[in-house]
Amino acid sequence: MKIIVLVKHVPDAQFDRHLTGEGNTTDRSESILSELDEYALEAALQLIEARGGEAAGNKVIALSMGPAGAVNAVKKSLQIGATEGVHLSDEALAGSDAAATSLALAAAIRHLGTDTPADLVITGMASTDGETSLVPAQLAERLDLPQVTFASSLELDGGKLTARRDGDSHADTVEATLPALVSVTDQVNDPRYPNFKGIMAAKKKTITTLSLADIGVDPAQVGRSGSWTTVESAEVRPARTAGTIITDEGDAGIKLVEFLAAQKLL
């Protein structure tokens, strides 16, 4: 089985994040592998391990699109256990919106499937910077694959995929046949951490760098100029400041209600 996992290199949410890049784009200096993509990687690793692992000819390819630093998301994926890594990087990709990102990633996925198409493409439920959840659905559309997104559980039996998807008013059981595009939520598994053995093993694994020319994408179709949306302005939201903090002296419940009444919230 061949699984492509999409991993994004995103600013670490533990620090302040900024839209100070060119054209109101994200400052990517303090970036990490998007934590939500760790669930996608774990799902892929579990699927191949249940089928004899790499020894049985299975592989997990970690694919990231992004500037030079994004190779770190690929490296981290290799340390966690991916078989090989691919870094799609090209100056012309800067400022791509979801549509342009999905166009480039779809072309990269097709390129990686030239000899043997992937059985599964697995993504996170959302990138922790863009947070749009548009890319997985757009990839399913572009690649004409069954879309099995927001999976909170995932089972594969032969060529049949069964997933659970939780909605607000209902929970659905979803079925599709391979090949398919899957996105997984943080309910689906508990991602593993890289261990010493994994970190050492990763040093010997291959990372392929692809340019737009390699995957046959016209630079005009991607990046800021090829995007279908533009960000016209970006401003820091005034940080929330702490208000009144009191220590309960037996009457804090009443003080709380007085505060709500004063704010006309009762």
Binding site: L19, V231, A234, R237
Partner: peptide
């Protein structure tokens, strides 16, 4: 965006 820390148009 960015978890409510920025506003954009």
């Amino acid at each position: 965006v960015l978890a409510g820390s920025w506003t954009t148009t």
